[in-house]
Design a protein around this nucleic acid. Sequence first.
DNA 1: TGATTGACCAACT
DNA 2: CAGTTGGCCAATC
Length: 109
Amino acid sequence: MEKGFFQQVYDIVIQIPRGRVSSYGLIAAYLGSKGSARMVGWALNSSRNIPKNIPAHRVVNRNGLLTGKKHFGGTDIMADLLRSEGVEIENNSIKNFRSYLWDPSDELK
DNA sequence: TGATTGACCAACT
DNA sequence: CAGTTGGCCAATC
């Protein structure tokens, strides 16, 4: 019985260290052809239905833009969470995004 | 059951 | 440079 795509996404996202971020595309790429970047978004969307703690705020798009912030209550909750972890946010995007980037295919292997 | 949509991405017009 | 399109696959209508 193989894990579902969603579960694999959760497993990765949970492992993102505090103060670091990752992107939908990288996670999708790490999982190979099992899914696409959109599916990662879907997985995180469903993540509120599961008992686990998914740090979905640490996942942004490939530009470091907080595209999913509207799903965090409509305000800047997502940005605040990241700021409280030491990530600098400006105009809904992460400053110096590359230095915070956590690439699963590089870190997780 | 078929059509539409979506927290993306890259290429094309 | 902004808008559209195709691709990926599951969930929702």
